[in-house]
């Protein structure tokens, strides 16, 4: 009996968005009297950080501080239409819609400022910190917040913008099979190292190292968090998680957290990644979708590492100790 080590590799191309019957996201933005901007969405933040990156994108486009943006999400009774948070689409689709809405709101803001400052719109700029000024004339500078208040109390105007982004439905060409189902693709490659105990069939994942090509990162900390959490999920799918019974009786299936297996703090391997940024042509500021793909390549990388370590090729998840021991037995019988 031995503890065998192996290394496995896997790569993934992952589409951003999917081919629905037209895939739209919409956004509305308005300024409050205090000069903050409310972004209204129906898209949902699942914990991946959508509200944060949308706040960043809106702030960047409007030219104000991140703290001036309030992102109001996930009420489909009252919000503008959105297809939802799935298919790694939200930052791409919603981000594009928010850029459109923020651009319109910015124009409304500049129109009011133009009257107030008696300067042409083309001569105005916003500095990214909530100051609006005549270009090259620092003395003629006002706060965006003041213009927002004046718009409502002096000029009777709204500072608001509408934005929509839609990926049209792609029809398959019957002659060639060609189609355009997604908006862009992110890429990754993962190398996993494992140790397999041939007596118990237990697998220890030693490391998961990846390279990710993700387009422009709006928020590098959130990108790193998605990748590291995704590596954990991939490892969990590869080795532990299933709702099916391990033995052929329904009452053996996991019913709760005590029985549904997942790796915990004691099972975590070294997780390291490098990020490559190759901006997409159609994402907001070059974004590509990242979320779902992070749980993909770790799975075949771990299964390949088990094959490298033991010679046992397993094609059904999760790779339980029982499957490994049966595989080792079958190899021993075949060779004897």
């Amino acid at each position: 009996m031995a503890r065998l080590r192996g290394t496995g590799m896997a790569a993934v191309n992952y589409p951003t968005g999917m081919n629905l019957g037209g895939d739209p996201s919409q956004a509305l933005i308005h300024a409050t009297t205090s000069g903050s901007f409310v972004v209204s969405l129906s898209a949902t933040d699942l914990g991946q950080g959508l509200k944060t990156v949308i706040g960043q994108i809106a702030a960047e486009t409007l030219g104000v501080e991140f703290g001036e943006i309030v992102v109001d999400t996930a009420d489909t009774d009252t919000g503008p239409h959105d297809m939802g948070t799935f298919a790694s689409r939200a930052t791409h689709r919603v981000g594009n819609a928010v850029i459109a809405a923020a651009t319109e709101a910015r124009q409304a803001l500049l129109d009011v400022a133009s009257e107030e400052l008696e300067a042409a719109v083309e001569d105005l700029e916003i500095d990214g910190h909530g100051n609006l000024m005549v270009k090259g004339v620092p003395s003629r500078s006002v706060r965006v917040a003041d213009i927002a208040a004046l718009a409502q109390f002096k000029y009777g105007r709204t500072i608001a913008g509408r934005g929509s982004y839609m990926k049209p439905k792609s029809i398959v060409d019957p002659e060639t099979g060609a189609m355009d189902p997604d908006s862009t693709e992110a890429h990754a490659c993962t190398v996993a190292e494992v140790e397999v105990d041939t007596e118990t069939g237990e697998v220890t994942v030693l490391s998961i190292r990846s390279a990710y090509e993700v387009g422009r990162q709006v928020n590098p900390a959130l990108v790193a968090g998605q990748i590291e959490g995704g590596a954990w999920m991939g490892m969990s799918h590869a080795l532990y998680e299933t709702t099916a019974p391990y033995y052929p009786a329904v009452d053996h299936s996991p019913r709760d957290f005590s029985e549904y297996l997942m790796p915990g703090t004691l099972e975590m391997p070294i997780v390291e990644s490098v990020i490559l940024e190759m901006p997409s042509s159609n994402g907001p500021y070059g974004v590509k979708g990242l979320g779902e793909m992070t749980a993909n390549s770790p799975i075949p990388a771990i299964v390949n590492a088990i094959y490298h370590a033991t010679g046992v090729r397993i094609d059904e998840l999760p790779v339980t100790p029982e499957k490994i021991l049966r595989g080792l037995d079958a190899m021993a019988h075949a060779s004897s």
């Binding site: 590291e228 959490g229 954990w232 915990g264 703090t265």
Partner: peptide, 20 residues
């Protein structure tokens, strides 16, 4: 000791390392 202390707590998002 940190990893042992946290064994009873499930996290589904972070992969645990940032918590440790």
């Amino acid at each position: 000791a940190i990893r042992h202390a946290l064994t009873g707590n499930i996290c589904r998002c972070t992969g645990y390392r940032p918590i440790v």
